[in-house]
Structures are given as C-alpha cells and as structure tokens.
C-alpha cells in the first residue's frame, strides 16, 4: 500500500483520519473488525506504537472499541457518525467559503456555481 504521509503533522492524526473517513463513508460499519496494529504499521511503513496511539484515540472517541480477546471493532453509533459527518462537512464548507471569499466571488455567484457544478450520478 502506498500512502504519502505529511511529515509535518503527527502521523497518528493522519492514521486516525484515514480510518475515520472509512467509517464516515460507510466503508467500515458497526461490527466490522479493525485490522491488527502490526499489519497497519507494516502496510504504511510506520511505527506500530504510532498506529496503536491512533487506534486508542479512536477508542476514546468511541468510534472503535478493543475487545480483550477478539480484537478491535467499529462501534460507532449512527448518532455519532451523523454528528461527525456534520462536523466534518461544516468544516469543509467553512473552508470552501473562505477560499471563495479569497477569490472575491460573491455569495450568489458561489451558490449558482455550486448548483451548476453539482451533478447527480
């Protein structure tokens, strides 16, 4: 697997991002087993302790839970996922608005462009 981590940002945050996105996108759902720490470390070429830290952080956010014997599972409730999705989309929208403002594009122009650009597939 090849994935380019940014060396400027803590690696564990980037690993968390990868798996949180998987959960928010519905590719990992409640009850799914998380891959073992060692496997992830090898796949991304990072220190196992870093992966461990990312996963513990996900446990803390109640996205996953570690069962002592059987491994780590996705336990995120629909409410949690929903709120994280809203949180994340809100952040993306805010970033987008800032970018548009920087380009001196008005609110109306932006809305029109979004309507025009949005294609249902």
């Amino acid at each position: 697997m090849s994935y380019e981590f940014s060396h400027e940002v803590p690696i564990y945050l980037q690993i968390m991002d990868i798996y949180r996105s998987e959960i928010l996108a519905g590719r990992l759902i409640r009850g799914d087993q998380m891959p073992p720490v060692r496997e992830v470390a090898l796949a991304y070429g990072v220190n196992p302790n870093t992966v461990q830290k990312a996963f513990l952080e996900m446990d803390r956010l109640e996205l996953t839970r570690s069962e002592r014997t059987s491994g780590r599972f996705v336990v995120a409730t629909d409410e949690l996922i929903e709120s994280l999705r809203l949180e994340q989309s809100d952040k993306k929208v805010q970033d987008f608005i800032l970018d548009m403002k920087a380009l001196r594009i008005s609110r109306q122009e932006t809305l029109d462009m979004v309507k025009k650009g949005w294609k249902d597939d």
Binding site: H7, E8, V9, P10, I11, Y12, T50, K53
Partner: peptide, 14 residues
Amino acid sequence: VEELRAETGKSIDN
C-alpha cells in the same frame, strides 16, 4: 517525535 511535529508543524528532517 509526534510531540515535535504537533508543536512545530515541521518534519523531523526539517
């Protein structure tokens, strides 16, 4: 290292 990255926003190499 993760503390360093978080604090400085830089890679260890930098």
